Amino acid sequence: MRRLIPGILPLFLLIGGCTSASYDFVQTASISPKFKDTDPQDFGDLKPQVHPVHGIDISKWNGDIDWAKVKQSGVSFAFIKATEGKDSADPRFQEYWRQANAVGIPHAPYHFYYFCSTADQQADWFIANVPRASMDLPPVLDVEWNGESKTCRTRPDPETVRAEMQRFMDRLEIHYGKRPIIYTSVDFHRDNLVGHFRHYHFWLRSVAAHPSKTYDQRRYAFWQYTSTGVVPGIKGLTDINAFAGSPKAWQAWVAQMNKN
């Protein structure tokens, strides 16, 4: 087993039981959505609303943000795009994380991975652009197939994918002292990640069904359940996510992350 840095194991203990089985003990009929959705999905009993802690993920495309309104609306966390590949940085990252920090929203940067440059090149770029102060939560590695990219549609074999991911995450863990979270999509997970990285927390995209129905044997810490959400303080549509744990578990984890 690879060494777990301090602060990571407690989250396993807090949310380790938050799989689909947890819903057997929750009455969901009377739970209202926390945020509006312009294209709501029918998740049945396994709806995002049984999770009380919700947050957003954003990039430059979200434009000007009124962070005070965002906080007042009930947003508990924000994942903010920082970098992409080996030479692209989101021009609003520095502004966004400082403003989120000013209103007290826990935040973390994410990196969109390109398989056309090396893990070390991308880790160097991320580290050069992302200060330690910009992350209350662990940094995120966003791994998806770039099917619509104009510059990089490379699809390495699964072994290469996992080796590159591991190298990138090791670099970030050493530098920042926090084990990265892995964000992924259904097809990328199916092609590369089933049965692997069990000692990492996952943030799963699943906008039409509960993750237990779309991912093979994968527990999650965060669930991205819509890309068409409406959040006060943000113009246009917004990605919204749920944390797979109670408010008490959330507060304990955030506190633990900030000790590192």
Rank of each mutant, 00 (worst) to 15 (best):
I127Y: 05
H199D: 15
D136A: 13
L11E: 14
K235E: 11
I31K: 11
P106E: 14
G236L: 10
K60G: 06
P40H: 12
Y110L: 10
M165W: 04
M1K: 10
H210W: 14
T28H: 11
G17M: 02
S206Q: 06
F112I: 07
C18M: 10
L137H: 06
T151S: 15
Q217T: 06
Q49P: 05
M169Y: 03
A123K: 10
A163G: 08
L4K: 09
S212K: 02
P156Q: 04
P211S: 06
P156S: 01
S76R: 15
D124Q: 15
G16D: 12
T118S: 15
P211C: 03
G229F: 09
R218I: 03
F79N: 12
V230N: 06
A68R: 13
I127E: 10
T226I: 11
A249W: 01
P40T: 07
W250G: 01
D87C: 01
V140L: 06
K235H: 13
F188S: 01
V130N: 03
A249R: 13
G233T: 08
Q49L: 05
I8K: 12
G233K: 07
N192P: 03
P156E: 00
G7N: 05
Y113G: 01
A78Y: 09
F188T: 00
S227A: 08
H196Q: 10
R190K: 13
S22E: 06
V70T: 09
D64H: 07
G195R: 00
L13F: 08
V130S: 08
P33E: 12
A221C: 10
R153P: 02
S227P: 00
I234N: 07
K259M: 13
P109E: 08
R155L: 02
P106Q: 12
V231S: 04
M165H: 02
N146W: 04
Q99V: 00
L11W: 11
M169H: 04
I105W: 11
D142Y: 00
S20W: 00
S134T: 06
V26S: 02
D45L: 11
A21Q: 14
G104C: 02
E95N: 06
K235N: 12
F77P: 12
V140T: 08
T154H: 01
P109K: 09
K259Q: 15
D170Y: 05
R167W: 03
R2V: 12
E159Y: 02
N146E: 09
K150E: 05
S88N: 06
F115S: 04
G85L: 04
P6C: 02
G229W: 08
F79A: 13
F43L: 05
V26Y: 05
G147F: 02
D90V: 06
V143C: 09
T118G: 15
A208P: 04
N101K: 10
F25R: 15
K259G: 07
Q41E: 15
Q166G: 01
T154I: 14
G44E: 09
Y200P: 01
A209Q: 15
I5C: 09
R190C: 05
G55L: 09
R3H: 13
G63P: 08
K178R: 11
W253A: 14
A29S: 13
L237W: 15
K86P: 00
V186N: 01
V50N: 10
D66K: 07
I234Q: 08
L204V: 11
V75T: 09
Q94D: 14
Q72F: 04
R92I: 02
L141P: 00
A123I: 03
H107G: 00
T238D: 06
A21R: 14
L193F: 02
A163Q: 15
